[in-house]
């Protein structure tokens, strides 16, 4: 059961990473990047690293998204 969950998580991770590279709208890319971070946090937890998972969820998903949105509000939204 955990195997299937892990495979699904990794699949979704790859899809999110490719989406960040492909998508043209920068705000959508940021949202995809934050979902990448959230999935990465669950994967860290699955890899028995709850410490890293906590930091990834707080920094990788929360603060990075907010900082990138702040950067977009100072510049342009289109690439």
């Amino acid at each position: 059961m955990t195997e299937i969950l892990n495979i699904l998580l990794l699949l979704f991770l790859v899809i999110c990473a490719l989406g960040v590279a492909w998508i043209r709208d920068l705000l959508s890319a940021i949202i995809l990047f934050s979902s990448f971070g959230l999935i990465m946090a669950i994967i860290w937890q699955q890899l028995s690293a709850p410490d890293v998972a906590m930091v990834e969820a707080a920094l990788g998903t929360g603060v990075t998204t907010l900082l990138l949105i702040a950067a977009i509000s100072k510049t342009r939204r289109a690439e």
């Binding site: 410490d51 906590m54 930091v55 707080a58 920094l59 929360g62 603060v63 907010l66």
Partner: peptide, 9 residues
């Protein structure tokens, strides 16, 4: 570090 990051967020 982890707790500070959560609090700051």
């Amino acid at each position: 570090f982890s707790g500070g990051a959560i609090f700051g967020a």
